[in-house]
Each structure stands twice: as structure tokens, then as C-alpha cells.
């Protein structure tokens, strides 16, 4: 059972998402919020498995929420809920601690799939974005690459060359799921080591 909390300010979308996820047997929607500020203490208390966090919220932005409560919810994974794939905020959110993202236009099955994948340790996102995120982390502390495993470095390289997950999977003869998992690990490692600086860099750039 995957416990989920939804934070989304637009009512139609929130209720739609809630409806959708409630229909899934494996999912348990713990709570839904329309405001990040209200959500944060509850999330810490509820300690859900997954939080679907809208980026574009009035008041406190989704990114800030993630940043603030990430440490208090070690076991929680944050998923960014966004409209555009090319939104720069995605990269910021991922650098802030989110592990994946969902497009609002995604079809319901794909959505469910992505959530399940994230829960299994993957990083469902486009390789473009993954490349970018990792690129930020690399800038921050290049020597941390050494802490990555050989496979992870390989994937990293291919990713930097612009290969899609599918293509990387083909090239390395692994499944796509494995690819995303590796990428997830890469994040984790880089997150821990570089988050502060990365955030600074990212937000400094802004």
C-alpha cells in the first residue's frame, strides 16, 4: 500500500487526481491539501510514502515546501506535479529534493505507472531534465563523481550525451526501470553531498 498525500491548489485538478488515485487498489490517499503551508506539518506527521506537490502554488511554492520538510520526512519521496516539461522550476525542485515529476497532462495509467516506479526507486523524468539536474550537481562538486559506481558513471555519461532512458537501457542491456533506479541513486548521492551548495548555486543563479 502506497500512502499518498496530494498538494494542489486548483480544485478540479486536485479532486480529479484524488478520484483517480482512490480507484487504484495499491494506493491510499491519506490527505489532500490546497495550500503548502497547511500541508507541511501534516505531511511531517503523516509521513506518507509519496507526496504529489504542485509547483505553481500561491503563497509558499512547492519547491520551498519540499526543501523545508525533506529532512523531516526521510522516507517520503516527493513528486513534482507540473504543467510543462520544459518548466525550469522542475530542475529547481529536483535539486531541492524532489525525485521525479508528473505532468498534469499525463494520462491516468501513465501517472499510476510513474508513481509506482518512483515508489520502486526510480526517477521518472525525461532524460533532458535528468541531464540538467545532474549537470548542476556536477558543477557543484565534480569530485563526487568518484563516489558513484561504475555503472552509475556510465549512465551518467550516456545521459550527458543526450540518450534517452530507453536508449541507455538498450545500450547497457538493462531495463528502463534499472536505468531510472541508477539515476535515482545518482541523485541520492549527489543530493546528500551537494544539496546545500547545489541549491545555492541553483537559486543563486536565479
Amino acid at each position: 500500500m502506497i500512502s499518498i498525500v496530494i498538494v494542489e491548489d486548483l480544485e478540479e485538478i486536485r479532486s480529479g487526481l484524488v478520484q483517480l488515485l482512490k480507484q487504484q487498489e495499491d494506493f491510499l490517499v491519506l490527505s489532500a491539501f490546497h495550500d503548502g503551508v497547511d500541508a507541511m506539518p501534516e505531511i511531517i506527521e503523516l509521513q506518507p510514502d509519496i507526496v504529489i506537490m504542485d509547483i505553481n502554488m500561491p503563497g509558499m511554492s512547492g519547491i520551498d515546501c519540499i526543501r523545508q520538510i525533506k529532512d523531516h520526512c526521510q522516507g517520503t519521496q516527493f513528486m513534482i506535479f507540473t504543467i510543462y516539461e520544459n518548466d525550469e522550476k522542475i530542475v529547481d525542485a529536483l535539486a531541492a529534493g524532489a525525485s521525479g515529476y508528473l505532468l498534469k497532462k499525463t494520462s491516468p495509467d501513465k501517472m499510476v505507472e510513474a508513481i509506482k516506479e518512483l515508489h520502486q526507486g526510480g526517477s521518472p523524468m525525461s532524460s533532458q531534465i535528468a541531464r540538467k539536474v545532474i549537470g548542476y550537481f556536477k558543477e557543484a562538486k565534480p569530485e563526487d563523481n568518484n563516489q558513484l559506481t561504475k555503472k552509475e558513471n556510465e549512465i551518467l555519461l550516456l545521459l550527458s550525451k543526450g540518450f534517452l532512458y530507453k536508449e541507455i537501457a538498450g545500450k547497457l542491456s538493462i531495463t528502463m526501470g534499472t536505468v531510472t533506479q541508477h539515476i535515482h541513486h545518482i541523485y541520492e548521492k549527489l543530493h546528500v553531498a551537494n544539496r546545500t551548495e547545489a541549491i545555492n548555486k541553483v537559486f543563486g543563479r536565479k
Binding site: 486548483l10 478540479e12 479532486s15 480529479g16 487526481l17 478520484q19 505553481n56 504543467i83 498534469k104 497532462k105
Partner: peptide
């Protein structure tokens, strides 16, 4: 894009829930 995107998303979801 934020506003427009939000609006489009709402249309989409409303439509989806109506469809059900």
C-alpha cells in the same frame, strides 16, 4: 504559461471527470 497552463489543465480534468 502558468495561468494558461493551469486553465488548460482544469479544462482537461473537468472533461475527464465528466467523461466518467
Amino acid at each position: 504559461h502558468d495561468d494558461m497552463g493551469a486553465g488548460l489543465s482544469r479544462i482537461r480534468y473537468l472533461s475527464a471527470s465528466m467523461k466518467n
